[in-house]
Amino acid sequence: MRIFGREPIVVLNTLAAVLGLVVSLGVTSLTAEQAGATVAVVSAVLGGIAAAMTRPVAPQAFTAIVAAGATAVAAYGYEVSQETVGAINTLVLAVLTLLTRVQVTPSSPTAPTRPTGV
């Protein structure tokens, strides 16, 4: 399965990184805490979908957990700006996607089997 000619995992992680970029540019009227929560939740959801679509699941699940966790810590653990929250999310997603991509492959749906003797 391909989305825009690319593997779904790459598209999902790019979408999460773009969301982080939008937040870091201050395009939204969200506060830093709201932006951090939104980015963390979306990163976690998209990461969960991506993990379900890859084998083995562990590298992609790790990427999603670290990206969402780093964003949440940036938003709630430290007094940082909305721009910093988005930048941290974008950086973590980009680095982890590049590091874990070689360790995962898209899972393919099981091909239907033909009955024997046909």
Results as ranks from 00 to 15, higher is better:
A17Q: 00
A17M: 04
A17W: 00
A17L: 03
L21K: 10
L21D: 10
V23Y: 06
T28C: 02
T28I: 01
T31V: 11
Q34F: 04
Q34H: 10
G36M: 00
G36K: 00
A40N: 00
V42R: 00
V42W: 04
S43I: 02
S43K: 03
S43M: 05
S43E: 06
A44D: 08
L46T: 02
L46M: 08
G47P: 04
G47R: 03
G48K: 02
I49W: 09
I49R: 05
I49Y: 05
A50S: 15
A50H: 02
A50F: 10
A51M: 08
A52F: 12
A52N: 09
A52D: 13
T54H: 10
R55N: 14
R55P: 02
R55G: 12
P56H: 07
P56K: 08
P59R: 09
Q60G: 11
A61C: 07
F62R: 11
F62V: 15
T63W: 05
A64T: 04
A64I: 06
V66W: 06
A67Y: 04
A67C: 09
T71Y: 07
T71C: 08
A72M: 07
A72P: 03
V73P: 06
A74C: 09
Y78H: 11
V80A: 04
V80G: 03
V80Q: 06
V80K: 00
S81M: 13
Q82S: 15
V85K: 05
V85M: 06
A87L: 13
I88G: 01
I88A: 08
T90C: 13
L91V: 15
L93V: 09
V95C: 03
T97H: 11
T97K: 04
L98H: 11
L99S: 05
T100N: 13
T100M: 06
R101M: 12
V102P: 14
V102F: 09
Q103R: 15
V104G: 02
V104D: 01
V104Y: 06
T105S: 14
T105L: 12
P106N: 08
P106C: 07
P106G: 07
T110L: 14
T110V: 15
A111S: 13
T113S: 15
T113N: 14
R114N: 12
R114I: 12
G117P: 08
G117A: 14
